[in-house]
Write a protein that binds this DNA or RNA. Structure first.
Lengths: 219, 219
DNA sequence: CCCCGGTGGGTTGTACGCAAACTAGGGTGC
DNA sequence: GCACCCTAGTTTGCGTACAACCCACCGGGG
């Protein structure tokens, strides 16, 4: 579901806003989330905030301890490793499926994303690692969408969301970053060739590269 | 009172009750879930029901269409197949991890579960397929717990819950059912031997057997 | 000096009420 | 006779008020 528009319901806007704030690092892991504070901040009452919080909790982005309120989840290095285990088990499979299903429009969109990532990711005056974060998320989301495997997407959904996983382009060293960007383009090339094996292999490499960066960084 | 102790919050009780009702088949897939009806049925106001519904939606058990209310999700054969893909990708891995981590207490508990499943699952006067459903869920949950892989559990959590997946012992033919029960015992044996490869192989067989039953049954 | 019970402030949990949105049914115009 | 619009009913979405609960601080007792 690519519907980013509407959000006629305030609870959806609240949920989206909170997710962006958490994923964007605006709300640090472990930060206490008061309902009234969030309600004022978002210009709605506590009720939709509450609902959004409940959904995010079920989604694994925040954890709610009894009457003590909600906190942004934080991840240990072991958790991070586990997350990559899951991604390695599922994403290459999804990428392979995508190879057989991608339409021309899909390929063009992915190509565009990969190109833009390369533009803002390459060292120089135009480098913008924060923009890269968003593009990267969009790329992987679109890829998952193309795979058309709802169960697979659902399984990954509550795992990849991990804030740390998606915000670590800042910790990439130049060589690893260059590899990562190249992988995106190569994945699209493999999809264009319709080669599922090639595509999934690149994705495995992509994740291996990311895992190496992150277990070494130990932020 | 099927839902354990705790649950000081009415919303948790509501969520647990709804989940049981859905997983237990009391609420059929596609059934319309009215908030007032559920509120009266559970003896609480609409607010906790609403919250419970929101969490179950994020969990993937129900789907809420705009202002049209919530419905119990229903699964197509393709969805089912996708679910088994995910399970096959993740559960054998978890089982392998469990082989290296299971304590004596874990093994005894799993053994007990396997034995009880065999008791209520074997053809005869004591056969109780409904009890089998609960035991099976407990067995797999415990196994996942022993694996101590939070991300893996989270990924599976929102997928396995699928009502159809957990309620299909009724559709097993005698031979498949016997195999399934034997697999549980064999898994414990493999764990006791500390043989991760053996354990994960049995789990793969277990899932393969289940998949074969379900794609053929088309309930 | 340390430990324990009491109390106050603040937060969450639940209930209720109102307004908007969707659905369905009947009536009218073409 | 058919299609469209309008209206009534029901349900959801949100706001607000009250009650329960937890935590921190403070005073008294051992």
């Amino acid at each position: 579901m690519t519907t980013t528009a509407g959000a006629s319901r305030a609870s959806e806007r609240a949920q989206a806003a909170l997710r962006e704030a958490i994923l964007g690092g605006e709300l640090a892991p472990g930060a206490h989330l008061g309902e009234v504070e969030l309600a004022e901040r978002l210009g709605v009452s506590r009720t939709p905030v509450r609902e959004a919080l409940a959904r995010l909790a079920a989604e694994g982005l925040v954890e709610a301890h009894a009457h003590r309120g909600a906190r942004v989840v934080s991840f240990s290095p072991e958790d991070l490793d586990g997350i990559f285990d899951v991604r390695l088990a599922l994403e290459p499979r999804a990428t392979g499926r995508a190879a057989a299903r991608a339409t021309a429009a899909d390929l063009d969109a992915l190509d565009d994303l990969a190109a833009r990532m390369l533009a803002v990711g390459t060292r120089g005056p135009a480098q913008d690692l924060d923009a890269l974060v968003g593009l990267n998320r969009e790329f992987h989301a679109r890829l998952l969408d193309v795979a058309a495997a709802p169960a697979l997407s659902a399984a990954l959904g509550n795992v990849v969301h991990a804030p740390v996983v998606l915000r670590t382009f800042h910790t990439y060293d130049p060589a690893s970053l260059a590899r990562s960007l190249a992988h995106h383009a190569e994945i699209v090339a493999a999809l264009r060739a319709g080669d599922a094996d090639w595509a999934s292999s690149v994705m495995r490499s992509h994740l291996g590269n990311a895992r190496a960066v992150m277990v070494g960084s130990r932020s």
